[in-house]
Design a protein around this nucleic acid. Structure first.
Length: 675
DNA sequence: ACCCGGTTTTG
DNA sequence: AAAACCGGG
């Protein structure tokens, strides 16, 4: 162990590449390197990666290992339940003096990485982290008053007009001097179980993980489909997307490299007066920007994957109906475009962005299921599952962002169908039972004359379902739900004014949308009028099966201000704001297993982090109930748990999260002007 | 210059 | 659904 004294550990996470990897470069610069990957999925709580995501990770790690070997070292892999303890062990056994890693911005990583820094610094290890995941670190992008932006377009305009460019990509190291890898044996990591192997084998036909295929995908895209990106982006057929998202998720290609290469094209096309090309570049950069924004939001509002950023839907009576949920997952809603999307998702782990919008908006608006269920299902099934991006997407669809969609709007899958899939090819590919239906009827089989159906071999209600909910009925139901929501909201406000309400401990915090436990209890099992589906409405949209939570309180007043002030030359390494205090506030309220968690926080910025209680959730919550059906596309996926009532996370609807919104946008909870 | 109505876009 | 956009009149 000693000979190599002074070596550096490079901790790989979602930066599985050798090019433009600042942490690796720093390691190489300072001498011998030990490259480590630690697999500690328990730390992710309920967000244990889904089958396809794990499949990708496995391939990608193997690829990285091969590259590192060709450069002179290899990747050490560790199985762990505590990354930081494992890091400390690696440090000890290798005699390392430095730790380098690239930053992540999801809430779990923020806390974990900060802890790593504290712990190892205390052991006299030099710890440095780098930005490798974003064009700009979140704290670099602020408005004129030094406050974080709250809408995407402002954020993105600022990014595009920053006084300095994003860091230029680094070349890969020519050679790596290996630390003493023998002193630190790898664990074998198991990413798939027997039952998953068969389905995983199919993935390899369509995808090839690893940084070199990521590079290839990037060049192919830039030299080909990019030009038409703007025109083609409306087609449901995924042939015109970049296919970069899973590569980007695992950091196999650097987003800065993508940005720089795209910009080169942009300049080129601008000079040629190629306006279509320019437009495409802008559209594509925008989707890169959304990815940036998702990290930005996650950093500034670490609850965004769990809670609406705006409190405006706090009292919305979501429909808790497993039957709906199941029909959606299986692609049996009776709406061909939605169903085709859900079948494709299940079969391939992939979905065109447009179709993601269609199926998720259907989920939230027509079925009125709580968005976090849908998000969780995406997490479990998408090849490019990404917590920050998916949270942003679902919140956008649900209308809980200042610039999100208006909640009251229901998209009509039939109309969308003729827009995105005018010939019905997409539907026919994924719904073989409708393959013989003429285009005229393909997106609304329920209107189709019996004779036509018969000729096409379609028997509604038998081999293809009738619509699970009619669009008109859904509109009515949505309006009813909304007026119910307003009533609750008004009642709650009144209760506050009467001083009946306890409040949340924080005076200005609780103003617009107080937590109303009583009302929740009252209405819990009240069936909704005019609701033949016997759906039970609940006021918590925060329930995600099998998630139990601890609330960790975080002090971050000064530090978040620090972050905001810090500029170029002195970038904070790990956001020091994430200072997890030891005191846990967890107030279990007995009834029905509800847990209320109180936020004692009085600080202006969002400053609470919640960690998931790892033990109870992962196994069943992620992939547990899934079974593969050979040759059949219909998914079999059971929800993580059937006991919904005990997962309620108190202090809900992002009072914490939305506080900064409500303060900076006092109007935002009124954005939804229903009447 | 300005208004109108249809169309497109909307993170 | 609402706002921005566009091309006449």
């Amino acid at each position: 162990m000693s000979g190599s004294g002074g070596c550096s550990i490079v901790w790989f996470r979602r930066d599985l590449r050798v090019e433009d990897n600042p942490a690796l470069a720093a390691g190489v610069r300072s001498g011998a390197v030990i490259a480590v990957f630690i697999w500690a999925p328990d730390e992710e709580g309920p967000y244990y990666p889904g089958r396809v995501s794990r499949w990708w990770l496995k391939q990608s790690l193997a690829h990285l290992d091969a590259s590192l070997r060709s450069l002179g070292t290899s990747l050490i892999t560790k199985r762990s339940t505590d990354s930081i303890l494992s890091l400390a062990e690696v440090v000890k056994s290798t005699g390392a003096t430095h730790l380098f890693f690239n930053r992540l911005y999801d809430p779990i990583s923020l806390v974990r990485d900060h802890r790593a820094k504290e712990l190892l610094t205390a052991q006299s290890i030099v710890v440095r982290s780098f930005n490798a995941d974003l064009l700009y670190d979140p704290w670099e992008i602020n408005d004129a008053h030094g406050r974080p932006f709250t809408t995407f377009s402002d954020f993105w305009n600022r990014c595009l007009s920053m006084p300095y460019d994003p860091a230029a990509p680094l070349l890969p190291p020519k050679r790596i001097t290996s630390g003493d890898v023998l002193s630190c044996p790898s664990d074998i990591l198991v990413f798939e179980d027997e039952s998953e192997k068969g389905s995983n084998a199919l993935l390899a036909r369509a995808w090839s993980p690893g940084w070199s295929s990521a590079d290839k995908a990037l060049t192919t895209f830039i030299n080909g489909p990019l030009l038409e990106y703007s025109v083609n982006r409306k087609k449901a057929d995924s042939a015109t997307t970049s296919f970069l998202s899973p590569h980007l998720h695992f950091g196999e290609v650097s987003v800065r490299k993508v940005f720089h290469l795209i910009r080169i094209k942009q300049v080129l096309w601008a000079n040629e007066g190629n306006t279509a090309g320019e437009e495409s570049v802008n559209m594509f950069l925008k989707s890169i920007g959304l990815r940036e924004y998702s990290r930005y939001m996650s950093f500034n509002h670490p609850y965004s994957h769990e809670r609406p950023l705006l409190g405006d839907l706090k009292f919305f009576p979501w429909i808790v109906n497993e039957g709906y949920f199941k029909a959606w997952r299986q692609g049996r809603t009776g709406y061909p475009l939605v169903d085709a999307g859900m079948r494709e998702l299940w079969a391939t782990g992939w979905l065109h962005d447009r179709i993601r919008v269609v199926v998720s908006s259907f989920f939230v608006k027509v079925l009125q299921l709580p968005w976090r269920w849908g998000m969780k299902y995406f997490w479990d099934t998408l090849l490019d599952a990404d917590l920050e991006s998916d949270a942003l997407g679902w919140q956008y669809i649900s209308g809980t962002l200042p610039d999100g969609r208006v909640f009251g709007r229901i998209d009509n899958p039939q109309i969308e169908g003729y827009k995105f899939d005018p010939k019905g090819e997409y539907v026919r590919r994924w719904l073989p039972e409708l393959a013989r239906l003429p285009t005229e009827w393909i997106h609304h089989p329920w209107d189709t004359p019996q004779s036509v159906l018969q000729a096409a071999g379609v028997e509604l209600g038998s081999n293809y379902p009738l619509p699970i909910v009619g669009i008109d009925a859904a509109k009515v139901r949505l309006q009813e739900a909304l007026s119910e929501m307003w009533q609750q909201e008004a009642a709650s406000r009144a209760a506050i004014e009467n001083g009946t309400e306890e409040g949340l401990g924080d005076s200005f915090e609780s103003a617009p949308f107080p937590f109303l436990q009583d009302i929740q209890m009252e209405v819990e099992h009240e069936p909704v009028r005019n609701n033949p589906a016997a759906a039970v409405r609940r006021y918590e949209d925060q329930m995600v099966p099998s998630i139990s939570s601890l609330l960790l309180r975080v002090e971050d007043e000064e530090t978040s201000l620090d972050l905001r002030r810090s500029t170029g030359n002195n970038r904070p390494e790990v956001p020091t704001s994430i200072n997890v205090g030891p005191e846990l506030h967890r107030e279990a309220s007995n009834q029905g297993g509800l847990q209320t968690i109180q936020n004692n926080n009085t600080l202006p910025q969002l400053n609470i982090l919640e960690l998931q209680n790892a033990e109870e959730s992962t196994a069943e919550s992620s992939s547990g109930g899934r079974r593969e059906r050979d040759g059949r596309i219909v998914p079999v996926w059971s929800p993580p748990s059937s006991s919904y009532s005990d997962q309620f996370v108190g202090e809900q609807n992002g009072l914490g999260s939305s506080s900064s919104y409500l303060r900076s946008h006092p109007q935002s909870h009124q954005l939804m002007n229903w009447t």
